Computed example of a mutant assay.
Amino acid sequence: MKAYVIHGPKDLRIDERTERDLAADEVRLGLAYGGICGSDMHYYQNGKVGHSIVRDPMVLGHELAALVLEVGQDVKDVSVNDRVAINPSLPCGTCIMCQQGEENVCFNMKYLGSAAKQPHTQGAFEERPVVKDHQCVVLPSNANLKLAALAEPYAIALHAANLGEVAGKRVLVTGAGTIGTLAAVAALDQGASEVFVSDVHHAALERVSKLADVQTLNAKAVEELVVSGEDNFFDVVLEASGAPQAFNTALNVLIPKGRLIQVGFLAPAELDMNLILTRELTVKGAYRFLNEFEKAVESVLAKPELLGAVSATYEFGVADEAFEASLDKQKHLKVMIRNDKYAS
């Protein structure tokens, strides 16, 4: 079968991979839709994400919805022809973090399409990926699989909103990419009183304003508006851009005792940490998701308007063209790969 395999920076190939027999608790899928994530783009462009470096060929992909083709002999809750969304996380269940119920920061986490460990955890951008049965969330028979493929990034956004305790709060989301856009939607879902989204690209702000009831701000003007008194301070900032300047701006526009949730990977830079001290700010990282995946599936299926977040789809087997499109944030929000054999 064919698979999207990253060999190094800008070295993405459609390779042939041998299918294997299923273990008793495994499920074979027909990939219907796969969303190209920010981490996939980092692997494609740079051969790494943060400290996760591609050292051996690795199948990309962890955002997917699929059709069940085959189940192992011990699988009870998933059946052939089920439509499923896939939770890409595989915590070990035994380390101290898992024992404390903090599985998303498991010391031994395996995550589809991740180079964090060696050997790497192979991803799911292949024609017939195999996963554990408990990774499958069975969908209604009429579920839109393109919507379902948004569940993983929405779960990340929902986790960030939950850490921000946004209910009743005035929230700023910095960065109107996929995670920032979905974080704005999640913040509204979690009861934020007002949600603002900032970005340097006008086209990105136009897109998010069509998907959610938010106010938009040019990222370069946010700090000036607040510091000058023309606008109010924010209670919570969900920083999704990964830009160091956005982090520093967030510190300046947060009310004392405010909360900054860092959900985008930050580039190395000098950060103004003194404001954290003088305003007694809370800064938290938001990494992947904890127990939000099934809620995320339910949420995206109830929001057909989120189909507007998918700006382009490419046929399975199209590699560089699809990934290059994903890098163009002026034109695209979420780019997906579609396999017509299983997407109907």
Rank of each mutant, 00 (worst) to 15 (best):
Y4C: 07
Y4G: 12
V5M: 03
T18E: 15
E19N: 14
L22P: 05
V27I: 09
L31F: 02
A32E: 01
Y33Q: 08
Y33H: 07
G34M: 03
I36W: 01
G38I: 05
S39P: 00
M41I: 14
H42K: 10
Y43V: 04
Y44T: 06
N46M: 13
N46P: 00
S52K: 13
I53K: 10
M58V: 07
H62A: 11
L64C: 15
V68I: 06
E70Y: 01
E70I: 04
G72I: 02
V78M: 07
S79F: 08
S79Q: 14
N81K: 15
V84S: 13
A85P: 09
P91N: 05
T94A: 15
C98I: 04
C98Y: 00
N108T: 06
L112F: 12
A116W: 10
H120G: 04
T121W: 05
G123C: 04
P129T: 05
D133V: 13
Q135D: 10
C136F: 03
V138I: 12
P140D: 12
P140L: 06
S141H: 13
N142Y: 00
N144C: 12
L147D: 04
A151S: 15
P153V: 05
I156Q: 09
I156T: 15
H159D: 08
A160S: 14
L163H: 04
E165F: 03
V166G: 08
R170E: 06
A176D: 02
G177M: 04
I179W: 02
I179S: 07
T181G: 13
A183Y: 00
A184S: 14
A187C: 08
S193E: 06
H201D: 08
H201G: 09
A203I: 06
E206K: 15
R207D: 03
V208G: 08
V208N: 07
S209F: 00
Q215H: 14
F234V: 07
F234A: 10
D235K: 00
E239Y: 05
S241A: 12
S241H: 03
T249D: 10
N252D: 05
V253R: 04
L254R: 03
P256S: 12
R259L: 11
G264S: 05
L266R: 03
A269P: 11
E270L: 12
I276Q: 11
T278H: 14
T278I: 15
V283M: 09
V283I: 11
G285P: 03
A286F: 00
A286I: 00
L290C: 11
E294S: 13
K295C: 10
V300L: 01
V300P: 03
L301M: 10
A302R: 09
A302I: 00
V310F: 02
G317M: 05
E321I: 04
E324Y: 01
E324N: 14
E324P: 01
L327S: 13
H332S: 10
I337E: 05
I337M: 08
K341Q: 11
Y342M: 06
